[in-house]
Simulated scan of single mutants.
Amino acid sequence: GTMLIYGSYVSHNENLPKLGAAVSLIDIGVAVLAGLLIIPAMYVALHNGVQIFGENGKLLAEDTLIFAVLPSLFDTMGLVGIFVALAFFLLMSIASLTSSISMLEVPVSYVVEKRNVTRQKAVWIIAAIIFSLSVLIIINFNTLFGFVITLTTRYSQPLLGLMLCIFAGWVWRRNDILQELKKGDEHAEQSLFWRIWPWYVKFVCPVVIVFMFYRSL
Rank of each mutant, 00 (worst) to 15 (best):
L86K: 10
L90R: 11
M42E: 10
T76V: 06
N140W: 14
F141M: 14
V108N: 13
A122S: 03
I149Y: 15
E186V: 00
V23P: 03
C165G: 04
D63C: 14
L70D: 00
I82V: 14
H12F: 12
W170H: 02
F167A: 02
G184I: 10
Y110F: 11
L217P: 01
V207D: 02
S24V: 08
G54A: 04
L60F: 10
D63V: 05
V117G: 06
L104F: 14
R115N: 05
V207S: 12
G35P: 11
N56A: 03
W172R: 04
M92G: 10
I66H: 15
A45D: 00
I125A: 07
F147K: 14
V80Q: 15
V106E: 11
P206A: 07
I39C: 02
H47E: 14
S72H: 09
L178H: 03
I137A: 13
I129D: 03
I82T: 11
V204N: 07
L90Y: 11
I196N: 14
M3T: 00
I125N: 08
W170Y: 01
I125E: 04
L159C: 10
V208H: 05
G78W: 15
F193H: 06
D27I: 01
D75V: 13
A128N: 06
I196S: 04
D176C: 10
G57T: 05
W194K: 01
L33Y: 11
I126E: 04
A31V: 09
L91A: 13
L178G: 03
W197G: 04
K182Y: 10
P17Q: 03
C165R: 08
Y110N: 07
F53C: 12
I125Q: 09
V210L: 03
V111D: 12
A122G: 01
L151I: 09
V111N: 08
S8G: 01
T76Q: 02
P158Q: 06
F131K: 05
L164T: 11
L91K: 11
A41P: 00
K202T: 08
A95L: 13
S93L: 13
H47W: 08
K58A: 06
L91S: 07
Y200L: 03
G169L: 02
G35E: 06
T98P: 12
L70N: 10
I38K: 07
V207K: 08
Q190C: 02
T118N: 08
S109R: 06
G29S: 05
P71I: 09
A21L: 07
W172V: 03
A41N: 01
G78A: 12
L160F: 14
S156Q: 10
H187S: 07
A31L: 06
G54V: 04
N175F: 07
L159S: 08
L37G: 05
F88A: 13
L164G: 07
E62V: 08
L97R: 08
S156W: 10
T76E: 05
L90D: 06
I26P: 08
A68Q: 14
V208D: 05
G54E: 03
L133D: 11
R215Q: 13
R173A: 04
N175K: 05
A22T: 05
A45E: 01
Y155W: 15
E62I: 07
F67N: 09
G57P: 05
S156P: 09
A168E: 05
